[in-house]
Design a protein around this nucleic acid. Structure first.
Lengths: 226, 226, 226, 226
DNA sequence: CGATAACCGAGACGGTACGTCGAGTCTTGGC
DNA sequence: GCCAAGACTCGACGTACCGTCTCGGTTATCG
């Protein structure tokens, strides 16, 4: 009766990403799942959340009603409310930007700037909120988000750093993990934790990159004045 | 019948912070509230959470049963489940450390080291988890935690910075807000978000302070080797 | 949590019928169950059924709503929909009549007449309908109804027969079981099975008693004409 | 697409009862309905019910699965679950016996004996159970069963009575309706209502006919001994 | 022989009700 | 007036069926 139900936990695209060879030879009998229903559910979740409803007000019954869909149609796709939320949230998240690649430092600024703008946009801000507010309660969300967002970002940063090292722009022993944390951490804190360290300043990203690379500094920095 | 109920939202000590004079002149007739019940509730919450239960599994009924207390006894103290959680969390949190004050940089390391050790201890790690995972859903928690933890820490950092500037240890234009964020942000990320950027390294705090002050650096840093 | 839940299956009166000694010495702590709620539920069931709704349309949710009661209040009293139905039905049933006792034959007529009138009254007709329509699906109903209705009636008939035998009105070897069946069976059939053998005839009961006692007869009955 | 669907409510044989000429001139293009599926459904219903399942446990989905048939195949034949049940029940019912016709009284005994044996056999007992337990809820069943079982039996009894009257075996004014009820009623009660008035006694039918014809009797019956 | 049409098993669809659980309130007897 | 116990209303949870609707595929008759 229940052929698959936790399919969406890792990698949401049905059919897989590997080319050519079909994942399942059995021709999947019966009426196929409605793509329309799936989109209606996602849209309903988004709409409900954008209408100011808190995360606790997000009801499976409410989503079903708002999407014009039966509850069973939701539970056929996800085993419970949390799994649905995880999957929808991940789908709603913005993709990472393409990096222009002029110089490594600019790429880091571009990346941070993307994060900053995500924090300003209502929808993606909500996505981040949900993610970081539910990580503890929903281990699955942590897993998925890490695989689909965090790890790619770290990879990106690492490649940028390597490029910068190759061109001599960065020191050869620059620790890309530490760099990633020191860039992403403060931006995340501003985005999801405190409203009073706002994201409005357009120069914020550049300032952060500058600070991380050059240091906020002790007196040794007087060399700058020289 | 129910004389007060949202007393605990700011400042949890009954009777207020001002010394001596009771807040209410009316002497509160009838049997006084049981201090034992209050502690039993806090202990029950702690015990339940330490036993691996997720935050979603924390129910008022469960707490009441675990504490050997009636549900009404809980609702007599807090207006709802969230308020109880906020209050208990704040009570369980560790106080900030006294700063030895040899040199400013060491004080920053001490402060970060305290955060790191909190992240390693099970109980305070859970407190941090709850706080940063529920900030969005519980505005009251944000308020209370900000007043009781975040603001004091920023103040502390600001005073350390000022001291460092006075002694010439730090540049005169060092932005203490930015410094706070760049120190606290990455440590928080390691603590509450991802398990794979661990806190085990005893030199972590010193390395972070060093990195923030001196920068992770571009090629200009070769001068260090000089 | 669930101290008692199948209490109503046999003997609906809480506290028992035995005199003096209390059934439970423990003083039953906590808020007692609302008698009003119980009656509201029964009334709601009756009202819903009288409004032409079929048995299949009788919903626990509907009953709860009609009674102004939470579903939990129903499920606190009965373990499921069927048990509730059984209990309510038995409560709604009319009690057996007092038998005047002039002569045994008249008592039998009185008894049958009571059945006939029950079949004509809307409410008790519905009770009978439910009972006889659900006996197969609800073994509990069979049990309860037998103990509370059928067996008492058989006892009554037996005592009437014995009285008639004592006065010489009946043969000494009259089989009271057989008599009960031959009186009750046809009346039940008219009541619950077929509409076209109606109960309107006021002389029906007397005719049935006469027929059962004297026989519908072969030619020997010409003595009647004499 | 759906040319006919309530065909089975009266007269289950497709094609109608009139001989030769097909009811519909249009020759029903396309693949004809599978006779095998139809039988599988009936068999599945019978099997499920014989396995001790209650009537409430009989679901369309369960029947479809047990029969190895799609749900649509069921709904193509009957408009809903109840219609299916009615039709299957009628098909499973045993036909009435041929009456030997020696003397009228023996015929009545034969008829009752057939009923008694049906009540003893598991399958036909279940059929009777369902019929008499669902008459209230399923008006269609009442209709069909009356036409196909009850009315013929009454006709049979009436003809037997008329024959008995013609031969002088019975009184001329014997009410055949009353007789039918007084014979059938008690036997039905024993069969479908109470287990404790069993059907095992092989002499039961004869005793019943005797009782109905001769009466259970008051003291006047002492004349029999004379 | 190919097109057409209705069939077939499988299973997803929108609904409705089930029985459970928890939130926050109310009501007992007893301290 | 507090306390433990537990009933109260309300509403969401996740499950099961109902009757309908596609899917891909099969099996008849018609043209």
């Amino acid at each position: 009766m229940d052929t698959e139900r936790q399919a969406h936990l890792l990698g949401s695209a049905p059919g897989g990403t590997s080319a050519g060879t079909p994942t399942c030879a059995a021709p999947r009998r019966g009426r196929p799942r409605s793509e329309a229903a799936e989109q209606a559910i996602c849209a309903a979740v988004e709409r409900l959340m954008m209408d100011g409803a808190g995360l606790a007000d997000l009801t499976v019954e409410g989503v079903a009603q708002a999407a014009g869909v039966g509850k069973a149609t939701i539970y056929r796709r996800w085993p419970n409310k949390e799994a649905m939320l995880v999957d929808v949230v991940v789908r709603l998240d913005d993709p990472e930007p393409e990096l222009a690649g002029r110089c490594a430092k600019d790429d880091l600024v571009t990346l941070l700037e993307h994060m900053r703008r995500r924090g300003l946009a209502k929808r993606s801000r909500w996505v981040l909120m949900v993610v970081f507010n539910q990580l503890h309660g929903l281990p699955a969300l942590r897993e998925v988000y890490y695989e689909r967002v965090i790890r790619p970002r770290r990879e990106t940063i690492r490649s940028v750093v390597e490029r910068g090292q190759a061109t001599g722009e960065f020191r050869a022993d620059l620790d890309s993990e530490m760099l990633a944390e020191m860039l992403v951490g403060p931006m995340l804190v501003r985005t999801v934790l405190w409203d009073d360290a706002p994201l409005d300043d357009p120069g914020l990203s550049a300032a952060m990159v500058e600070a991380v690379l050059e240091g906020l500094g002790g007196p040794a920095h007087v060399r700058r004045a020289g």
